[in-house]
Simulated assay, not measured.
Amino acid sequence: MTAISRRMLAGLLGAAAFALTSAAAPPAGAQVKSLELIAPANPGGGWDQTARAMQTALQQAGLAASVQVQNIAGAGGTVGLAQFVTSKKRRGDAILVAGQTLQGAIITHKSPVTLNDITPVARLVGEYEILFVPANSPIKSLGDLLAKLKSDPGSVSWGGGSIASTDHIVAGLIAKAVGVDPARINYIAHSGGGEALGAILGGHVTVGIGGYGEYQSLTTDGKARVLAITSEQRLPGVDIPTLREQGVDVAFFNWRGLMAPPGIRDADLKVLTDAVARMVASPAWKETMAKRKWTDLYQPAGEFAAFIKEDRAKMEGVLTDLGLAK
């Protein structure tokens, strides 16, 4: 065999190997050229944090050329939901960050627009809630808070997100668990995490409730005292006692997910779902999950659609029990 024929054979074998490898590898998927992430609340809260974390992860992973975040606050997210449905219909370049709080707001506000009117993309993350007070609060423990609550329910003001949010539900569940009528709780609603935090640390409410990942810096910066967390058991590396270990039989888990506009084309939806699936597997997203102490609850579109229906039924039952829905 001549030198030329050996080189030719090597080239042919290399080409064949490349073809086999390419055929076996999964398609990279189309890059999203431009994407708008809608957080239906003011900056600072969980939806906003999720949207901005996605913005960073999608761009760092090269999955989107341009990502913008827009905040549309009001009525527990239902204002943003309604605008999303009317202004983004059939578009393939927009995603709404949704969650359990929005599900609750839809029920309590009797919103004519529901999650059934938009298109599931994926469930993303979950988060436990914490109870906390300013560092200078006379309340030193969960026991102090519960004693005050039982003595005079109206004297305890609970600061958190919107009416029927996960924060509101946790306050109601705690009251019910210790024998206080949930309808008597004094809940002060806020339209975003930043606004709520200002009220809580400013002493305008007795106790704050919010996502652990959202407010985790409070455990180390000395500005607040964390009384409890809603996890079933203590989280690894997190020195916060659970409600259950302090005698309150309540455990609660929030979730956040992504929705596309109504009428989106199948091809556009596939681009979005593929981009999200690849983002979830990216180092940037995994780093954010660890930093924020979020729990991975990823579900692809089909499973997420079934989950939304189950969650709606569960939320209706909980809100009815707490006197927040009829």
Rank of each mutant, 00 (worst) to 15 (best):
L227H: 01
A51Y: 06
T230K: 02
K140D: 14
E127P: 07
S66C: 10
I72P: 05
W47S: 15
E316L: 02
Q299E: 13
A199W: 05
S5T: 12
A64M: 04
A199G: 05
D274C: 06
A325L: 03
G198I: 00
R6T: 10
A65Y: 08
A30I: 02
T86S: 15
L243R: 00
T78R: 02
P43D: 07
S231W: 06
H109N: 15
P112G: 09
F18A: 15
L173D: 01
F307K: 02
R225L: 11
V178W: 05
G44L: 04
I200E: 02
A16F: 15
S151V: 01
T320M: 03
A164L: 01
S141I: 03
T166Q: 11
R90V: 11
L197M: 12
V125Q: 09
T220F: 11
A189G: 07
P40F: 11
A305W: 03
R123H: 12
L197D: 02
Q246T: 06
L58N: 02
P153G: 08
A41R: 12
D181Y: 13
A28C: 11
K88G: 07
A305G: 08
S87K: 14
A82D: 12
R90C: 11
A325M: 03
V250H: 04
D268W: 04
G29I: 02
A25P: 09
R234V: 07
T320E: 10
A122G: 01
R225D: 05
E127Q: 15
G99T: 03
R7Q: 14
D48Q: 07
E36C: 10
P300Y: 01
T166M: 12
K33C: 08
V280T: 03
Y212C: 06
D321E: 15
A228P: 09
R123K: 14
A23C: 10
L227C: 08
L197Q: 04
Q216N: 14
H168G: 01
Q246D: 06
T101A: 15
Y187P: 00
P182N: 09
K314I: 08
A277F: 04
I72M: 12
G211L: 06
P40Y: 09
N116C: 12
L13D: 07
W47L: 15
V205W: 00
A251F: 07
G45F: 02
G172W: 00
L297W: 10
A305N: 07
S66A: 14
R52C: 11
S165D: 07
V250I: 05
T86W: 12
T21W: 14
L149T: 05
A277R: 09
A65L: 10
I169L: 05
D239F: 11
R7I: 13
K270A: 15
R6H: 10
H204Y: 13
N186W: 09
V250P: 04
I72L: 13
V280Y: 06
A301M: 02
S22E: 13
A30Q: 11
S111A: 09
K309Q: 15
Q103F: 09
H190V: 04
A122C: 07
D152S: 13
H204P: 02
M8Y: 14
